[in-house]
Design a protein around this nucleic acid. Structure first.
Lengths: 220, 220
DNA sequence: GCAAAAGTGTTTTCAATACACCCATGG
DNA sequence: CCATGGGTGTATTGAAAACACTTTTGC
């Protein structure tokens, strides 16, 4: 086996969270050439002594300060020239985290510029990362229709209008409020916490949480 | 970057087809140690000048004589010790082919022993390939509920009882004949060819084909 | 008391399910 | 004419969809 049969593998991750009822994704500004100044997905080079999953977990913690992230494989990108400098094969992941668990202490990572972008305002990105994140969004869209994967996106307290808004932004279409409530409450996945979301305009919304120990199941 | 940051990547594929109304998968007998005599999934080592998709297509043609295979990525297996000799990262695929298109000319490949196995009779396999094929079957099961992915499994002429039998064996539960017909015909994915499947016991079944240019869509 | 957002109930429509009998062919 | 498997219709149930008004809070 020649050296040409060994490959550089990088991991990439599209991390999604909910910020003020909107789905956002975490990007990093690249500091050096190529694509200096462009936004890219977080990730890293796979070393010999780690699985792709441990690599992703470690990278996300080191670069973004996020741990306990829910991750799932998405897709492999192996086009020969996706990296202009050398052949790199990308294993892309989807990550979901609730906003309460995010602690990006910028002062601890002065060398890394990162920001959250709304799905409809993703900037021009380096490499093929726009294609990678589009694939991740598409996978996420397919998944939320049939699974309760979004559980990982929500902290213990959320309102039904917030949940609906997230579904609407990922599915990219409006949903009827009454039917959405009926469906979700009847599914038995969530429960009323007894608290309310006070201090905002209008009538306060009830706060819900996902029940523990609910196995992934079909929704729609 | 040290040499430990470069990796051997292998592709593996679980190829499914329909043989006499049953779903079967193609395995290869390993001829050398380790796992000599065990059955394994077809696949190969990724070279520097190919994508994982071209590698799979080429391997499936060279080792199994199958071309024009529908392929889809399934999962990456990167456990450190999944191969007892060295670190190898596996990119696993799902392949679907209709039985008419299969031409495994054994006389042309005397050095390769291959066989089709029913899903409920998969033998003991080498490496972690049982885990890999289980993952592929599970992915296939999830997909046939919501997509018309099975189009790739059927030649131009098939009967509704055959189609139903395939759904039953992948979903692993019985389906009502009348309701299955109603649903599938109403979906508009298939059309009557006008021919019948004569020469068997009982009333001949109508032959159907998948319509051309139907995009993948939700079924159930 | 008004603006803003949350919460609720009914009707209609359609798909899913359950179920039993007749039909076409081969032998 | 009988054995074998294919084809069909209807009634019921339940979920999805469409739709407008009332309630609770902050200011």
């Amino acid at each position: 086996m020649g050296d040409s049969d060994k490959h550089i593998i990088e991991t990439l991750i599209s991390i999604f969270t909910i910020d003020k009822g909107k789905v956002k994704t975490l990007l990093i500004r690249k500091k050096d050439e190529p694509y200096k100044g462009y936004w890219i997905l977080p990730g890293g080079i796979l070393a010999g002594n780690e699985t792709i999953e441990t690599n992703i977990s470690n990278n996300v913690f080191e670069k973004c300060g996020i741990y306990n992230l829910y991750i799932e494989q998405d897709h492999i990108f192996s086009d020969l020239h996706r990296n202009p400098e050398k052949r790199v094969i990308a294993c892309s992941f989807i990550g979901l985290i609730d906003s309460i668990s995010i602690k990006i202490k910028k002062e601890e990572r002065p060398h890394i510029e990162s920001a959250w972008f709304s799905l409809n305002a993703i900037p021009k990105m380096g490499y093929d990362h726009e294609q990678v994140i589009e694939h991740a969004i598409d996978t996420l869209r397919k998944k939320i229709v049939n699974t309760n994967i979004l559980k990982s996106l929500f902290p213990s307290d959320f309102t039904l209008p917030e949940l609906q808004s997230v579904y609407e932004s990922i599915l990219n279409r409006p949903l009827d409020r009454r039917n959405f409530r009926k469906k979700f409450i009847n599914l038995g996945l969530i429960e009323d916490t007894g608290y309310k979301n006070e201090g905002y305009n209008g009538r306060p919304a009830k706060l819900y949480r996902f029940k523990e120990n609910i196995k992934e199941r079909d929704l729609f």
